[in-house]
Simulated assay, not measured.
Amino acid sequence: MIPIVNTSHDPHFNLALEEYAVRYLDPAHNYLILWQNSPAVIIGRYQNTAEEVHQLYLAEHQIAVVRRLSGGGAVYHDMGNLNFSLIVSTQGQSFNDFRSFTLPVIETLAHYGVKAELSSRNDITIEGQKFSGNAQYRTAHHLLHHGTILFDSDLDVVSQVLNVRQDKIASKGIKSVRSRVTNIKPYLPKDVTLEAFSATLATIIGSHNQGLEPAYAWSPQDQAAVMDLVARRYGTWDWNWGKSPAFNLTAHEKFAQGSIDVRLFVEDGIIHACRIYGDFLGQRDIHEFEAALIQQRYQLDTVAPILEALPIEEYFGAISRQEVLQVLFDTSPAQ
């Protein structure tokens, strides 16, 4: 197995690197990538991005959103999270065989005296709490298996950014199933760093794959091809947001100055219908406000400047712009 050394922490680049490896590297070889992302939410291939994340929280904390090739649910990455990617030949390899790919992780923890187990089709747990989610993607010649390992991630952020009121959005997107999660650091000997754990994991993965060969010789052409994938796919709104399934959003909030009830229909990430009801004390026809949102991206970065340019107090009375955004992007956490 050939290690690919990746020191990038850019989630757009890192997801593009995975696709480049699984599609274009020599299928006669298997590859291993161990990598970390700066704060980001990684969305499953068939998910509705707006249904999975709090957009206002993302913007406030500068957390990126990137869609991956594989299915499954949304996950939060930060520098306390270790990701592992295995790119192997499809010859004789069964798709959805998660056990053989997760066994090295379980053995690595056993090496440090920690008992872990594959508790479902694609999750690894310690004492019933999930620390690793896994997913796969297949091309004609390569199978990509990738997984997360919560080493010392900020679990408070996980609960904030992914704790969404899904009952208010109706779509055909694959919903994430929230599980009790844990970091593995509290279970490990105190002197085990993420770097040491990563090195042990690489060695054990290699032992399952006839050993580790010298690292992949990264070329300028490889770098350029990955950056091209970032430009064409992973860095674009169309891929990360626009590929979401169509959905209807119903949101209601009551403020001291009145209530707002919003109904949106969003398709390909674009607002196609908008109706707003409530007992707010506006002076202007609310249909003017609704019309300003039609054919706009359902994205905070797009809608917020539109609201800045509108006389909000004439439409909603004493209800503020920030409160209107709160309803439109439904930032209230699930209970």
Rank of each mutant, 00 (worst) to 15 (best):
L300D: 00
D123W: 15
G71W: 05
E19C: 01
F280W: 01
L103A: 07
F329M: 10
I294T: 05
L25V: 07
Y46S: 15
E313D: 15
L34Y: 02
Q55A: 13
I42H: 01
Y57T: 11
S89L: 09
D167F: 08
D167Y: 11
Q160C: 10
Y20L: 00
R67W: 07
N183F: 04
L188F: 08
A116Q: 01
V114E: 01
I276L: 11
N37D: 15
V181L: 05
G72Y: 05
A309Q: 11
L103R: 07
Q283I: 06
H252P: 06
G278F: 11
T250P: 00
I124A: 15
I33N: 05
T90N: 13
N81F: 07
F101A: 09
D238T: 14
N83G: 14
F101L: 06
A292T: 12
L328H: 03
H29V: 02
V161P: 08
D78M: 10
L188S: 02
H61G: 02
E60T: 12
K190A: 05
S244G: 11
Y277G: 03
H12S: 03
V66S: 07
D156W: 06
H252S: 14
A225V: 10
N81G: 05
A224L: 08
R284V: 14
V177A: 07
V53I: 12
Y46P: 06
Y234R: 09
P245R: 15
P27F: 04
V5N: 15
